[in-house]
Computed example of a mutant assay.
Amino acid sequence: MSGDAGVVEGPLHGYHHETYVVPLPGRPGEAEPVRWKCREPRPGLLWFDRRCFASEEELLRALQGRIEGIPDLIQAGSAGLQRFIEGETLGTLYGSGGGIPSSLLGQIVSLFGQLARVRPDSLTAERTCTSVYRAAEADTDGFLERLILFTEEEVYQRNMPDFKGLFYDLGLDDASFGKLREQVSGLTRRPFHLLHADLHRENFVVDGVGRLWTIDWELAMFGDPLYDLATHLYLMRYPRDQERQMIEQWRKAVESVVPGSSDGCGKDLPKLLAFKRAQSVFTDVIRTALSLEEEERTVDASPLARAGDRIQQVLGAATVPLGIKIPAPESVTAALGRWCEERAASAGVMVGAVVPGGA
């Protein structure tokens, strides 16, 4: 498409995709070439989140003119290309846990208001999530139950053959989901609208004039608006004062568009944040354990200890919603060491492991 393979950038490795960036002539009125990106899912990747739209490009096409600051699209033969947003991610400019300028915070709030205008019956993009994982309009309890069910079936149970021993050693079992349901039930009903569902610092790009762009719409869905806020707060790790500011401005933004969108916020937001902490336990345990396999099949004390620290942190954050006890650091590290040894043995590979505390 570019006429010169040498100008193609990539693959740029993200978690979910390999991305290639292609410079093409600009549209009328654009003097310089414009860079566009095409993406391919990485092979063999475990997916831990629901996908509710058949195509991210189709969704973005349907949102043009309705949501500001999203990538343009062009069709190049059979390939749908997104415009590559030139700039820096919010995470590069303002790392996790740090505050962000009020001008950028205001643009995120504006995005929430625009999302509130996109109701389930107003969008033509094809949806593929099955009825098992859909909830009726405003059934916030049903919506959250389907998120729990997805984590239980598609993350926990589906990966049991490979992680049963590790889950057991960390105190995670079928009863964990029953305890979680008890902790988060009884949500206030709220009208559903479009959710991005993955608004973290790496999915915001700040361009050269300070405009905020929102990318990676793959996890978008229709559902409880408060879930989008909870996910955003959980992933952004705002300082306490700015988190309170975001909550208050979010309430005003969504209420001005669809009254009732923030009903029960004070009572329900802690429950949805508790769900996010619990959900992260299962995904982080699997990802962290698998990352140890990239240590060239040699598990020494240093990466094993670091992995154990990460697991203990996510377990500690979810003790209440999952009804579990925080294992001692040496117990977590030993459990990971045993898992690595068992994986290596099943693959017929010898591993020289140094496991603090024995295994």
Rank of each mutant, 00 (worst) to 15 (best):
Q82F: 03
R83K: 11
R83S: 00
R83P: 00
F84L: 04
I85H: 05
G87A: 04
G87Q: 03
T89E: 05
T89R: 10
T89V: 02
T89Y: 09
T89S: 11
L90M: 13
L90H: 11
G91H: 02
T92F: 09
L93H: 04
L93E: 05
Y94S: 08
Y94R: 10
Y94G: 09
G95T: 12
G95C: 06
G95M: 06
G95Y: 06
S96F: 12
S96M: 14
G97H: 05
G98P: 01
G99S: 14
G99E: 10
I100K: 01
I100E: 07
P101T: 04
S102C: 07
S102H: 09
S102K: 14
S103H: 14
L105Y: 05
L105F: 03
G106D: 13
G106Y: 05
Q107T: 08
Q107V: 02
I108E: 09
I108S: 10
V109M: 08
V109I: 15
S110I: 07
S110H: 15
L111K: 12
L111D: 03
L111Q: 02
G113W: 05
G113S: 11
G113D: 14
Q114T: 04
Q114N: 07
L115F: 07
A116H: 08
R117L: 08
V118C: 00
P120W: 05
D121P: 00
D121Y: 00
D121N: 11
D121L: 07
S122Y: 04
L123M: 05
T124Y: 12
T124M: 08
T124F: 04
A125L: 10
E126L: 10
E126D: 13
E126S: 11
R127L: 09
R127P: 00
R127D: 07
T128A: 09
T130D: 15
T130P: 13
S131Y: 04
S131N: 07
S131Q: 14
S131R: 15
S131L: 15
S131V: 12
Y133S: 07
Y133R: 01
A135D: 06
A136V: 13
A138R: 10
A138P: 04
D139T: 12
D139V: 09
D139R: 06
D141R: 01
D141P: 02
G142W: 11
L144S: 01
L144K: 05
L144E: 03
E145S: 10
E145C: 09
E145N: 12
R146G: 00
L147H: 12
L147G: 00
L147A: 03
I148C: 13
I148E: 06
I148A: 08
I148V: 15
I148H: 02
L149A: 14
L149F: 01
F150I: 05
T151M: 11
E153R: 15
